[in-house]
Write a protein that binds this DNA or RNA. Structure first.
Length: 309
DNA sequence: CACCAGGCGACTC
DNA sequence: GAGTCGCATGGT
């Protein structure tokens, strides 16, 4: 099966900052390119001077799914112009200009951030990888070295071993498991992916969705506050995780997730040596940064995580 | 070995 | 309402 490729023309796009800024947890950098899975597509992305080169393992029906995911059609200049003109924002933008907010699948995003609480990003990546290996559908990939198609999938997988390819010659990857597949798993199976106390939260969310009692698509029609209220009815989903999903999957640009890094950024950069309560800080967050506050938040987050301490 | 990690929820006062 | 604490697990 021949691969397909395209050059997405886009300027002011920092692929590394975008894919490695804690929005999505499945991208890997190797040999100068980023490889990952979007829906049922394995993809290899390479930053080029005039855009992003994309390669898939098989034929695809157009590329709109990829433009949507990467948000290449967003006018970044217009977004950045809405940011407040203050020193912290100027520094954050200068540090990672070209960073975009992705538009991810709601279920994958929700599940990933349910797994994120009190975990470092490297560990979230590990848990998500294990989850996909155990429960996700196999997906063909391109060979690493010379672009040849991968070997056929093995006919039978061992039930208790992760379904890995040989580490030196991966021949398939995995889709993110569906809610139905997670709902059919046991809590102890999920715990074997090292997610600990988050397992019952993920399982309960998957079951509600699989049973049709929670409609992720319906959230698109709701205003931000209503969609947030719906999401936080899920166990293990509070305001922070809900805002991550609303920003990274639904495109609610004014959602402003406040985690430990962003809270540190707000306190250190905007209120140094001052005692400010949580409530006042949250009020500042949702009023100071404008209509694309979520974008501003992601710049602050990445800036704080990557700057020398 | 403490201490912390893109939190949440139950429990105090 | 605002603090405090346990929750699994692994990295530093």
């Amino acid at each position: 099966m021949a691969g397909t490729e395209i050059l997405l023309r886009v300027r002011d796009y920092d692929l590394a900052a975008t894919l490695d800024s804690g929005q999505a947890f499945r991208w890997q950098f190797q040999d100068g390119s980023w490889t990952g899975v979007i829906g049922r597509h394995w993809v290899r992305l390479t930053q080029k001077r005039d855009g992003i080169r994309a390669e898939t393992a098989g034929p695809v029906h157009g590329w709109q799914w990829l433009r949507d995911y990467l948000q290449t059609d967003v006018d970044l200049d217009a977004v950045l112009k809405t940011f407040p003109d203050d020193a912290p924002m100027r520094d954050a933008v200068a540090a990672c200009r070209g960073l975009r907010v992705l538009r991810q699948d709601p279920w994958e995003c929700l599940a990933s951030f349910i797994l994120s609480s009190t975990k470092q990003i490297v560990q979230i990546r590990q848990i998500v990888t294990l989850l996909c290996e155990r429960f996700g559908e196999p997906i063909p990939v391109l060979g690493l070295k010379n672009g040849r198609a991968g070997s056929p999938l093995p006919a039978v997988f061992s039930s208790d071993e992760p379904r890995r390819g040989r580490s030196d010659a991966p021949y398939h990857s995995f889709a993110f498991p569906t809610p139905q597949r997670i709902a059919a798993a046991s809590e102890s199976e999920l715990r074997s992916c090292k997610m600990g106390f988050r397992a019952p939260h993920l399982l309960a969310a998957a079951r509600r969705i699989a049973e049709g009692k929670f409609d992720l698509e319906r959230l698109r029609q709701l205003p931000l506050a209503g969609a947030r209220a719906e999401l936080t009815t899920l166990r293990g989903v509070g305001d922070k995780i809900a805002d991550c999903v609303l920003l990274f999957a639904y495109g609610f640009d004014s959602a402003f997730p406040v985690d430990v890094w962003v809270e540190r950024a707000l306190r250190e950069l905007y209120f140094p040596r001052r005692r400010v309560g949580d409530k006042r800080l949250r009020h500042f967050a949702v009023t100071h940064f404008g209509p694309h506050a979520g974008y501003a938040q992601q710049y602050l987050f990445h800036y704080m995580r990557t700057k020398v301490k």
